[in-house]
Simulated assay, not measured.
Amino acid sequence: MVLVRLVHSVAAVVLVAAAATGCTYEDPEPRATASTGTQGSEGAAPTPTPSPTPTMPTKLLASYPENEKLIVESSSHRGAAKLGPFTSKTGYIAVYVRCIGNSEIKIDISGVANFPQNCVNDPEDLGTKNSIDVRYADKFTITGEADASSIWAIAITEDPTGGVGQ
């Protein structure tokens, strides 16, 4: 009986001490909550992260290798632009396109090819290269069109590989 009273007394002292000092617990791995995005109750749904708004550069250039002969380079477009007419000495061109934003750019090489490309939210992205056979076109024009909220640039070079090995 004395042992039971002693256990109850010790338990009461521990409860009083915990209440007086403010017992706290720090979770070593915080969990996301719907309201704050930091620590919270288990099972709370995380707050959905919206798509990042791209940091829009004011000037955008297309990237291409220095050893390729440049036919045309056009930078910092919004909306649509038409370039040309041009000719190719090799019959093969490389089309380098960069587009920053939340839309899609459509490239049309008159009478030869056309292709869409998604714009990206990363201003550090170097863009894409497309090798195009223009041997059967005496002259060609390039049209690019994207949403006005996006910015894009294009460079056309003679493709030294002739489209081989791409």
Rank of each mutant, 00 (worst) to 15 (best):
N118M: 08
P52G: 10
N118C: 01
R5I: 13
S75C: 02
S110P: 01
H77E: 12
I107N: 12
Y64W: 09
A146N: 04
S131M: 06
Y96W: 15
P65W: 05
K106I: 04
D125N: 14
V2K: 14
H8Q: 09
M56A: 01
V164Q: 15
A18P: 02
D27K: 11
G40N: 13
D133G: 06
P65T: 04
P54C: 09
G162C: 11
L126F: 03
V164E: 15
P52S: 14
E42F: 12
E73K: 12
N114P: 00
S51V: 13
G40F: 14
I107M: 15
M56D: 00
D27A: 13
Y92F: 15
V120A: 04
D133I: 08
G127L: 05
S88V: 10
V97W: 01
G101S: 04
T58Q: 15
S110C: 01
L126G: 05
R78W: 03
V164G: 01
A94R: 12
P85Y: 09
V13N: 03
P46Q: 11
A148Y: 01
T55D: 03
T55K: 01
E124P: 00
T36Y: 08
M1R: 05
F86M: 11
K89E: 15
E145L: 02
Y64N: 03
I107C: 06
R78C: 01
R78K: 15
E73S: 14
N130P: 00
V120R: 10
A137G: 06
A113L: 08
A146H: 03
